[in-house]
Design a protein around this nucleic acid. Structure first.
Length: 174
DNA sequence: TGCACGATCTCG
DNA sequence: GAGATCGTGCAT
């Protein structure tokens, strides 16, 4: 299994969000422990126009990394206690990102950040070169459910209902 | 310089 | 159904 390269992350956020399903997220802790998780749920945030995307407020120290090239990590603290793990996608000056909402046996973006020991030190980390977090290639999956994004009612009618949440569903027995 | 709020979760 | 808890953006 090989690590996904920067070309993969240069695609648009919606495409990357969908393709990340089934891929393997690898986390190497400081103590040497290596854990692998299958990505099961993602959400796409696409550009300044997307009122649900943090970059809709423009370029700030916090959103800066999203304006860079895809393949870097965007983390931020929400509700004062949860670190959200995002992967920047797209090209330079296109602020896009994919939120990792769920992994195998870990459902919920807040729990993902806690379980993987994510904090602000991961801000801007290059996920194609990091030695503590990366994503491995895996075959594309077919059972994908699309849904609207969570917790963004403030984004207005046009954006809050976009089907940009992707969920990997279990194979139904035949 | 202050304030209201958020891409959440847990407990009661 | 409410509290925990704090960085950020915008108002003052």
């Amino acid at each position: 299994m090989s690590r996904l390269t920067s070309d993969f992350y240069k695609q648009d956020a919606v495409t990357v969000a969908e393709k990340l399903l089934g891929k393997t997220l690898v986390r190497a802790l400081d103590d040497g422990t290596i854990s692998q998780y299958t990505i099961t749920e993602t959400e796409a945030y696409l550009g300044e126009e997307d009122l649900a995307c943090h970059a809709s407020k423009g370029r700030t120290p916090r959103t800066e990394v999203m304006y860079g090239e895809g393949g870097h990590i965007y983390v931020y603290l929400i509700y004062g206690m949860y670190w959200m793990l995002n992967i920047v996608t797209g090209t330079v000056n296109h602020p896009e990102a994919v939120l990792i909402r769920g992994l195998d046996k870990i459902i919920g973006s807040g729990k993902v950040g806690r379980k993987l020991s994510i904090d602000k030190s991961f801000y801007g980390e290059n996920i194609t070169a990091s030695s503590r977090i990366w994503i491995n290639e895996a075959p594309d999956v077919l059972n994908i459910t699309k849904a609207s994004r969570i917790g963004i009612d403030y984004a207005g009618e046009e954006w809050k209902d976009k089907p940009w949440r992707f969920i990997l569903t279990e194979n139904e027995p035949k």
